[in-house]
Structure formats: structure tokens, C-alpha cells
Design a protein around this nucleic acid. Structure first.
Lengths: 128, 128
DNA sequence: ATAAGCTGTGAGATAAGCTAACATCGTTTG
DNA sequence: CAAACGATGTTAGCTTATCTCACAGCTTAT
């Protein structure tokens, strides 16, 4: 569950996510419009994506390549509902200090338990 | 060395880094001015920070808290020169597709070897 | 007391992101 | 077949985030 929080921490801007996923902004926004993802927003209404979000986007892309349409993808991804992307801890806006403190402790946890990479779950399912 | 590349991949915007480090934009820019960090730039000249960069910024912050001045910090951090932040692979601009492909393979590597988190090295050195 | 070091703040410019609307083009469906 | 739908591109107009540069202010070192 600490893992959930880590994976759903808002970190990436639209531009970066485009590079990481190879999708266009238009596509990403459209998928959000269709409830396939639900990225956080900055104070100024910019989307801020988590590892989970990037993960799902790669899932979506892969499924689209296989010819599955968005409705189908919604079904496939319904196992992992978008709500799972926003655990309570992530929702209640942390202060900057809290966020930082949290990140630190999370990192220590990761170190202690030899936890796997932040970006490992769904992301790695699809390649080689 | 694949690890180097991963850790020096430009990922974070100024706003995010401010939150992750608790530093102001002014401070971050000043540290860059003094060659303590050397973040990548976007096409439009915006700074794009890597895990390594965030790492160093947390180092810097920690040392400043201890009363070390920038000159001193420069010395302390000179073990890990800023050039180490930009390995050749990261320097030669990857195409978006290449970047994505690279990320994917990196993730798989991480998975295979049970590699530790992307954000683990220097970052975790300082807390608890 | 001056100088140097570090950070704040403000101005002016521009990049990057947002929404909304309309265009396009292939695939369903009546 | 024509109309509707699904997915994406493109454009316009607007707002936020970031950039550089300059100057101000406070602290510490000379």
C-alpha cells in the first residue's frame, strides 16, 4: 500500500509522458475523457501523471496496437480500476514539506526491503 | 552504466523538483549557475531534471543545512562530477521512439535482476 | 565598513499546457 | 449507400509555468 502511494505520486508533465509513451497529447486527453486514466492536476490545472498513469497509458497503447477499441480496453483495464490510482493518502493534498518527507521515508523503505523499482509493475509486463 | 543512463534520464520539471526538494526555483537556478548541477534543457529551454539532479539537490540542501557554503559543497560533490550526470548515451539526443524503447528495455532489466528502485542511490543516503 | 555570498522579488518574454470546436477518415450500423 | 460513430489531427484563444535579467536585502567574511 505504501507501494500504491509511491506509484500514484504525481510526478510527470504532459510533455514527458508524451515522450515516455509515444502518445500524442490529444490521445492522452481523449483517454482521460473516456475514464481510462485519471491523472492528478496541478494548482494551475496542468495534468501531473504518476507512474501508474504512465503504466496504464502503455497498456492502452499496447492494446490499441492489438486492435482493441477503447470500450474493450476499458473492460480489460477494469480489473485495475482508476480509483486504485488515487489512494486516500495521495488524494488529501500533502503540503510540499509533507510530500518531501514522505518521499524520503518511502525511499528508505524501498532501500530497506530491497523493494523493486518504482516503475516495474504493469510497465514491464509488455516488453521483451 | 545502464544504471547511470537511467538515473540521468531527464524526467522532471522545475515545479516538481521544487516540491521534491523543498528548494525554490531561485535556489535551484543559482546552484546551476555555480555548476553544482547541470540539468538538461527542453527544446524550449526549460530545465528538465533527472533523478541524479534531484539527488544532488538534496545533497546540496542537506549540506547547506549543515552550514557548508557553496564552495565547500562544490568540493564535497566533486567526487561525483556533474559530467557524470550526462553520460554519452544520454547526451546524444535520443529520438522519442528510441527513448521509449530504451526505457522499456531498462525496465525489463530492472525486473529481471530484481534491481532496486530508480531513485535509490544518493537519494536515500540522507534520511533516517 | 566593504565586499562577497545567498536568496527574494519583479518585469517582460515565451514555452507548454488547457479547453473547445471543427476537420478527417476509417469502421459500423440502419 | 448514407448516416452515425470512434479515434485522432489541427487550430484558435487563453492561462500557467518557466526563463533571463536586474536590483534589493540580509548575513558572513575580510
Amino acid at each position: 500500500m505504501a507501494d500504491n502511494v509511491r506509484r500514484s505520486m504525481p510526478l510527470f508533465s504532459m510533455g514527458i509522458v508524451q515522450k515516455l509513451t509515444g502518445l500524442t497529447a490529444r490521445q492522452i486527453r481523449y483517454y482521460e475523457e473516456n475514464d481510462l486514466i485519471n491523472p492528478e492536476r496541478s494548482e494551475g490545472n496542468r495534468r501531473v501523471f504518476s507512474f501508474n498513469d504512465v503504466d496504464r497509458l502503455l497498456d492502452i497503447k499496447s492494446l490499441l496496437d492489438e486492435g482493441v477499441n477503447l470500450a474493450g480496453i476499458r473492460r480489460v483495464l477494469s480489473e485495475k480500476p482508476v480509483e486504485a490510482n488515487r489512494p486516500a493518502e495521495a488524494k488529501k493534498a500533502m503540503s510540499d514539506a509533507e510530500l518531501m518527507k514522505f518521499l524520503k521515508s518511502e525511499l528508505v523503505q524501498a532501500g530497506k526491503f530491497g523493494k523493486a523499482s518504482l516503475i516495474q509493475g504493469e510497465l514491464s509486463r509488455f516488453f521483451r
